[in-house]
Design a protein around this nucleic acid. Structure first.
Lengths: 366, 366
DNA sequence: TGACTGAACTTTAACGATATAGTCGGTCCT
DNA sequence: AGGACCGACTATATCGTTAAAGTTCAGTCA
């Protein structure tokens, strides 16, 4: 009925359900019901009194207590392995993260970041700390590092979403969200072939990375469609960096001469290659036509503007989040694997006299 | 003494302290002492038995239960406001995050991301959800959005570290980590003046952002040192984007003619401006010398390579993390404000006949 | 009239861990 | 010899919340 005295020792301490209950002259459980809007449990007048008490006391639910009780954490762990010294420096990674964040945040889930450098992989103990309802993996490391993490994550017994990667066939309770790298590679190659390319070089980093392999396969499939009249070489730099890429390409050119088309495994490599060619007096795109991969910002800041395959990075994050949310709500992933379309857009770096092809969209079917 | 039967209903459920205790024939508290390595509480033989039981049962401490009991969360919340649609798309933000992650991770803290779009700021309710030992803020939004978040965060009664921003004078329990934008601006301007610049234009976005203002102030202070013989204009694009920047610069040139030096508020704007100038037939750096700000990747992929001020983004993250850890361990921040040095490096875009200045480091004193 | 119903609350008992305060046999000191 | 003291454990009581099982009482229906 009447509110109990409020001058309890509430100084400095944060208000709990019990405090609110006392203030509103009821029990913690009732307050809990009000706060969580559990329908048909509490009458209007009491509910109002409780609400007011919450306001007055500045009550905020104690998330950890709630989590302990409900055994739900309302958080998704994100594990990132990025070969760069700045773990999340890859702009694609950041965009994926943003997509994840948008969808998960909207449903009240937090994102807990677990950056794991590929070198400090012995700190996989960190994974033990992961306390979340599910795990999202973005692994750009080499095969060994990747499978190591994947193995560990499997022991967590949590649903797993892999971004730009596949789980082992026998893995359960997991899903993959991929972009159509194969289609992207194919589109790039076809564009170059349409423009009359006869000697194509593709730049790749030494590190094995499935997405990169799929890009190459896409390129090869386009080549196969044209018969054997086109020369194709893959040039691998020590890493994806500027110097390593240029060094590798430079060696290749000295041994085999310059190509008339250059496919960068990503935008950075494409631009590094493009600049090396320029420096050697070759004109872009007249002598060599160049394309990249990813399309996050870089393409625009190169001269000439880089033709590239736009990655649906943000959508990858959104799709991964949706899959995870569906899994958590319905108990099963809505798909085992989903491949998002990419969009190839031709810009100045690969313009050719023959074709003035506009941007086009490539979808599904890795 | 002897281990109790293990065939309790432990199927599917994860092992708790109680389970381990039963298996090792002791009490939960003792297991807790062993697991947490509390010295001198448990004898060797029992400790060994407990360890083994942990192994066998695959015991992992339940972080949430622990957090509830100890009222420590071992997590730092990170709130990001980024004007771009991809909240964390700014490569600087990503690098800061990486720095934070490295230091916090090493001390067992998780990072909980709270991306907050500037538009969906009414969802500040999200901040209420922040359950962490401290909060780190990276705010690139406009003044209104920034102060809104800062106000809200103040009510959280948690230690706050601001990155690239300052708290209101009267705020307590907070610290700022900044980079020396003033010094960077000054260095850029001096470099250009040394090269003989007489008509300088600085590109800025419409949005007010303290760091950007400090850059401008740095530039102005260098100009002031040279007497009044140099023309200086600030050109503001609608936003930081390519089109908006070019449009603004284009208007300016039509009204006032081309400058002989262009200072980009960041690298993207610098490159957008540089390309506009090129397209108009001006040569870089012979006719117009151009500099940027940030130095994360972009500079390298521009043609010519962009002179720029390298941001210690990763170090900002590390410093912020260290400050927070110190605050949590010792009860007080080690500093109210720390300004990290930046490094200006001249590349092709601002080469001048007169000076062939090498990279140089500018430190402290905003 | 009296058993039955349902809305509106309250009680009780955890969730898994840990701070704090015992207990208990044995040493050490005077 | 007897009390203080110590090391190695155990017992108890929470932390803030919520699921599940009461309780109460006004109204309903046979």
């Amino acid at each position: 009925m009447t509110a109990a005295p409020v001058n309890q020792a509430l100084i400095g301490r944060r208000a709990t359900l019990r405090d609110v209950a006392r203030a509103a002259g009821t029990t913690p459980m009732t307050v809990s019901n009000v706060v969580n809007g559990r329908a048909g449990q509490v009458g209007k007048p009491l509910a109002d009194r409780v609400m007011k008490a919450c306001q007055t006391l500045g009550y905020r639910p104690h998330a950890n207590a709630r989590r302990l009780r409900t055994d739900r954490r309302q958080a998704i762990g994100v594990i990132i392995i990025d070969p760069s010294p700045y773990y999340v420096s890859d702009p694609l990674t950041a965009a994926v993260l943003a997509g994840l964040n948008a969808r998960l945040g909207a449903r009240g889930y937090s994102i807990v970041i677990h950056g794991v450098s590929p070198t400090a992989l012995d700190s996989v103990s960190m994974l033990r700390q992961v306390e979340s309802d599910g795990v999202c993996l973005m692994l750009s490391g080499d095969a060994r590092a990747r499978s190591m993490v994947i193995d560990r994550v499997a022991t967590l017994q949590q649903p797993v979403v892999l971004i730009q990667d596949r789980m082992p066939e026998d893995a359960t309770d997991c899903a993959s969200v991929l972009q159509d790298d194969f289609g992207g590679g194919r589109a790039v190659a076809e564009h170059l072939l349409d423009g009359g390319a006869r000697r194509i070089v593709m730049l790749k980093p030494a590190l094995e990375w499935p997405a990169m392999e799929r890009r190459e396969q896409g390129v090869r499939s386009a080549l196969a469609g044209r018969g054997g009249s086109v020369a194709f070489d893959v040039v691998r730099g020590r890493d994806e960096g500027f110097e390593a890429t240029q060094a590798a390409l430079s060696r290749h050119i000295e041994a085999h001469g310059a190509p008339d088309a250059l496919i960068g495994g990503n935008d950075q490599m494409a631009i590094a290659g493009m600049r090396l060619l320029s420096d050697r007096g070759l004109r872009i795109p007249q002598d060599v036509r160049v394309t990249g991969f990813n399309g996050l910002e870089f393409w625009r800041y190169a001269t000439p503007e880089l033709s590239t395959v736009f990655s649906p990075a943000y959508a990858l994050g959104e799709t991964a989040a949706d899959a995870m949310l569906a899994r958590l709500a319905e108990g099963a992933f809505p798909f085992r694997e989903q491949v998002l379309p990419v969009r190839f857009a031709a810009h100045g770096s690969s313009a050719s006299p023959q074709s003035e092809s506009p941007a086009r969209s490539i979808s599904g079917s890795a």
